[in-house]
């Protein structure tokens, strides 16, 4: 059977790992290449980099990070943040990324999903959705959580799929950095709405949260940042725990 993927995420700002709570108050958490190498050795099934304050001038350090990581980590690398157009995607892929994740650019220009998935294959195009609860539904936010687009998150996930996205990276802004678990309702609704894999993100605090994201949320993969960075939980802990709960995870390569 296909295994559930455990994905550590590294939020990178100007070539350094940072991690915030609810998208603000960042603190330094080390060198991304070093971190990624440790994760891959520990059994990470994939590694995600998010270039969180990417502006065009700051792209160079990120490309350097991807390049160096790809020389040392032989698991899939996803990179997101600051992608505006096809040439930005090409830059990341040529540096060694396997998938690119786009958020604001996809909302502003949905055709970019279509154009890029035609060119690079849909397996390569991840649409990242930052969602925030509005009474009974969730809205999509862009620009690093600063702007409410008013677009419904579930409807947007479906549209992204129809345009050629190969995966949805779903982050709950309400849960991000709070360690109170994934937004399971949101995750379950989006997972059920699309037939492409959904990566649950935002809110992991303990081992049970990973299990719930898969079992209740229906996620194909679970992503976490701070619990891994600050070594509160190791990737191996997660895998051993999930295995004990009869969830199929990859344990053969470490």
């Amino acid at each position: 059977m296909l295994k559930v993927r455990i994905i550590p995420c590294l939020d990178v700002d100007n070539g350094r790992v940072v991690k915030g709570i609810n998208f603000i108050s960042l603190r330094d958490a080390g060198d991304p290449v070093e971190q990624a190498t440790i994760y891959s050795r520990e059994g990470a099934d994939e590694i995600t980099f998010l270039d969180i304050t990417a502006t065009h001038q700051k792209r160079k350090p990120m490309l350097e990070v991807i390049k160096k990581t790809a020389e040392q980590c032989f698991v899939p690398l996803t990179v997101g943040g600051g992608i505006q157009n096809i040439s930005g995607i090409t830059e990341f892929l040529l540096a060694g990324a396997d998938k690119v994740s786009m958020n604001s650019a996809a909302i502003k220009n949905p055709n970019l999903i279509k154009e890029s998935s035609n060119k690079f294959g849909n397996q390569c195009i991840v649409v990242a959705i930052d969602a925030k609860k509005k009474s009974k539904s969730w809205n999509v936010y862009i620009n690093g959580g600063r702007v409410d687009t008013g677009v419904d998150a579930i409807a947007w996930a479906k549209k992204a799929e129809s345009l050629g996205a190969g995966e949805i990276l779903l982050t709950s802004m309400d849960k991000d950095g709070t360690k109170s678990g994934f937004d399971l309702e949101l995750t379950a609704k989006v997972s059920a709405a699309v037939s492409i894999p959904v990566v649950a993100s935002g809110g992991v605090g303990n081992l049970q949260d990973f299990f719930d994201g898969i079992k209740i949320g229906g996620a194909s993969a679970v992503l976490a940042a701070s619990v891994f960075h600050f070594k509160e939980i190791t990737i191996r802990d997660v895998k051993n725990y999930l295995k004990s709960k009869n969830i199929d995870v990859r344990t053969d390569n470490f």
Partner: peptide
């Protein structure tokens, strides 16, 4: 089975 496509990830 409602399996997700692409077949993406690690498999035995």
């Amino acid at each position: 089975q409602k399996l997700k496509i692409p077949h993406m990830g690690w498999n035995n």
